[in-house]
Amino acid sequence: MTGFVVIRDDTPASAIPKGAVVAMGNFDGVHRGHRAVIGACLDMARIRKAPAFAVTFEPHPRKFFAPDAPQFRLTDEPAKLRLLAGTGLDGAVVLRFDAKRAATTAHDFIQQELIERLGVQGIAIGYDFHFGKGRGGSPAMLVGEAPALGIEVDVQPHVDFGDHPVSSSAIRKALAEGHIAAATEMLGAPWFITGEVIHGEKRGRDLGYPTANIRLDPQCELKHGIYAVRIGRGGKHYDGVANFGRRPTFDNGAPLLETFLFDFKDSLYGEQLDIAFIAFIREEEKFESIEALIRHMDDDSARAKAALAADHGAFPKLGEVA
């Protein structure tokens, strides 16, 4: 088995490596708590000389149960898989979360998916992860059934940040409040987005700050403001400063991420970039003149360069997904 393997519901049985050890969870953000579960999976797999896989669900179960509620995801499916691929796992089992899966009992899920289809030897799970119809599957239930199933179960305790466990919801809240350092600490690496560079109004050229513009998911709740960012492109990283917001000095339009790359001249239109958020500089403001705006942009750039110099090149570790 070479590369990071992705197994889905329609993957034929002949293409599924049997006898793996799995880390099971939703893994939104692949934060430090998730990484503890993945680490336990990797340790178990190493001892057993078995492949190590993540078992996860798409779309996120919250989307199925509350389709009309806002869903600020830290990582969409491609980003989540790239982060999982960067942990050392051999692959991921991505199971579609639909009405049929929501109605599957925990016992049936364990027997049909984990034992019969995957033939797992071991399962690592977080202390608060539940699965199956009515959330009937729990860490305690898995531990209780492990001897009869002939598998090993490892339940990881919570990983704390300050007085609270690290969680995807706590990271979302930190990002919504502009607390980038806290989000980075809980994630274990800077939060990032991936998007295609689109054409904008090209005002940045006239201001001396040509930007790469990316539309984020409309449900993204990142605080509007100015950020020090690090950009991933073609295996290389570039420093920059970005504005995420509505551009109140000009049009107060739809939210847009506008990124200025330092010491970079090439065209980026149509390219996919990874933008990692390193530090929050200030809130978005409306300025009374273009001159005032440019002065603040100059100051923002200087502050962003200082923040980037202080973080020693931090960037999320991303793997290749076929």
Rank of each mutant, 00 (worst) to 15 (best):
I115G: 07
N243C: 10
E288T: 12
A92L: 02
D10I: 06
L261N: 00
S301G: 15
G234W: 12
I193T: 11
D68Y: 12
I151Q: 03
T87C: 12
H34Q: 10
A276D: 03
A36Y: 01
E196G: 02
A228P: 00
A292W: 06
A304K: 02
H224R: 14
P51W: 06
R117W: 06
V94F: 05
D160C: 05
R135S: 13
I193C: 11
I151Y: 01
H224Q: 14
P316E: 05
A106E: 03
P147C: 08
V6K: 13
E291A: 15
D90Q: 07
L268A: 01
I123M: 08
R172E: 02
K317I: 10
G137W: 00
D263P: 09
V6G: 08
K223C: 05
A228K: 04
A15Q: 13
I290H: 11
L268M: 08
A50M: 02
R203N: 04
K223G: 04
K223I: 03
D163V: 12
M44W: 04
K223A: 13
L268D: 00
T56Y: 06
E285N: 09
R117T: 03
K305R: 15
R215M: 11
E320S: 07
E196A: 09
D251Y: 09
A279I: 10
D43R: 09
E116G: 00
I193V: 15
R101V: 10
V229F: 00
V21C: 14
G136F: 04
L149H: 05
E113D: 09
P70D: 07
P157D: 12
G126S: 07
A36D: 00
R247A: 10
D299K: 13
R101W: 14
H179R: 15
A279C: 13
A15E: 12
V22N: 00
A92E: 05
A148C: 07
D206G: 14
E177Q: 15
D90I: 01
A176N: 07
G33Q: 02
A52H: 02
I290G: 02
G134H: 13
I47D: 06
G240L: 07
S301L: 09
H158P: 11
K286W: 03
E285C: 09
I281M: 05
P255A: 05
A306Y: 05
E258N: 12
N213F: 11
